[in-house]
Amino acid sequence: MTQTFRHPRRQFLKLVPASLLLAGAAVALQAPAARAQTFPAKPVTLIVPYPAGGATDVQMRSLALAASKRLGQPIVIVNQPGVGGTLGPAAMARTAAPDGYTISVINAALFRLPHIQRVSYNALTDFTFIMGLNSYVYGVSVAADSRWKRVEDLIAYARANPGKLSIASVGNGTSGHIATERLAKMAGIKVNFVPFKGGADALVALIGGHVDAMIEAGWGAMAESGKVRLLAVALNERLKRWPQVPTLRELGYDIAIQSEVGLAGPKGMPPAVVQALHDAFKASLSDPGYQQALQAESMPNIYLSTAEYRQYAQTQFASDKRFVEELGIRLAD
C-alpha cells in the first residue's frame, strides 16, 4: 500500500486559522522597529569641546543629568577641548558610529573655521544636527583691578601703543576672534590676539594679569563675584541683569554676535534616534539646575528644533564666509 507523507509544518498550517498567521506575520515585521525603539540601551557619550570647569561644561553637565533621567541611561561627559571648540566634534564626525551613542556640543566656530583654514570635516554634510540649545553672550571684559573702566579707555591705549594691547578669546577663528578683529578694524587699532583652549583658561589669564582684556562668553560668574569688570556686550540690547553696561553698537561699533550652541552627531543617524535624543534634551531645558547655570552667564535659552538648527547651520556657514572674506583672515594650514 502506498502511503502519502505529509510534512508536519504543512499539516500545522492547515490547522492554524488564517487570522492568527497574519497576526504572527505582523509581529515579525514589527520586531525591527521595536528593537530600534529601545534606544538607548547603553550609556550615551556627550563630547564637550571645552575644558572641565568652564561655563559650557557646567551647563552641559546639568542638562545631561536631567536628560539622562528621561532617556533611562547615563550620559557620560567627555571633555575634548581644542581648535576653538571644533576638535571634539571633528573627531566624532570622523570616528563615531552613527548610532546616537556618541554626540557632541557644537558651536558657531564649526561653521567658520572651514573658511579660514583646512579642516577634516564638511560642516554641512558630516553632521546630523539634533537641536539648538542656547546662545553665548559675548562681552568685552577686563580684570576688576584694571586701569581701564570703559571700552574707550582700551581703544585710547591701543592707539597710543600699537600692538601692545593683548585681547584673549577661545581659539583662532572663533566668534571672539572675529569680534576682536572687527573691533580693531573699526577702531583703527592694532592689538595682540591671544587664543586659549577654553573660556576658563582665558579668564584665569585675564584675572592673573597675563592679558589685558577678553572678548568672549563665560564672563558672567566672574563679573558677578567682582573678579572681572564688564565693559560692553556684543548684543543688540543691554542685558537686564547688567543694565549699566552698554552694547558695542551704542559705542559706535556695529558688532552683535549670535553664537548658537547645539547638539549634533555624526552623519547618517536614524531619524528615530535623533528624535529620541531631541525629545529628551528638549524636555530637560526647563531643568532648574540648567536654568541656573544659564542665568549665571546671562545666556538666553534659545531652543531650535532639528529642522531649525539645520537651517541655522546653513545660514551661519554662509554669513561667516562673508565676514572672513571681509576681514581677510586666513590661518596657516
Results as ranks from 00 to 15, higher is better:
301 N>T: 06
253 Y>H: 12
11 Q>S: 15
236 N>Q: 05
157 Y>R: 08
260 E>M: 14
169 S>I: 07
92 M>T: 01
55 A>T: 06
175 S>Y: 00
53 G>K: 13
83 V>W: 01
250 E>G: 05
149 K>W: 04
185 K>R: 15
67 A>K: 14
108 A>R: 01
214 M>R: 10
275 Q>Y: 11
201 D>W: 03
59 Q>G: 14
164 K>M: 06
317 F>T: 02
222 M>R: 07
62 S>N: 12
152 E>H: 00
138 Y>I: 02
147 R>T: 13
42 K>A: 14
232 A>H: 07
98 P>F: 03
282 K>Y: 07
146 S>E: 01
241 R>N: 13
215 I>Y: 00
136 Y>L: 10
185 K>V: 12
83 V>G: 00
280 A>I: 07
315 T>S: 10
297 E>M: 09
232 A>Q: 07
29 L>V: 13
141 S>G: 08
33 A>P: 00
226 G>Q: 12
332 A>G: 03
58 V>A: 14
138 Y>M: 10
99 D>P: 09
276 A>Q: 15
316 Q>R: 10
322 R>Q: 12
279 D>A: 14
186 M>H: 12
3 Q>R: 08
243 P>M: 02
1 M>G: 13
322 R>H: 05
20 L>A: 12
304 L>N: 06
36 A>E: 13
12 F>C: 01
150 R>F: 06
316 Q>P: 02
219 W>H: 08
325 E>M: 04
124 L>R: 04
59 Q>E: 15
116 I>H: 02
43 P>F: 11
6 R>I: 11
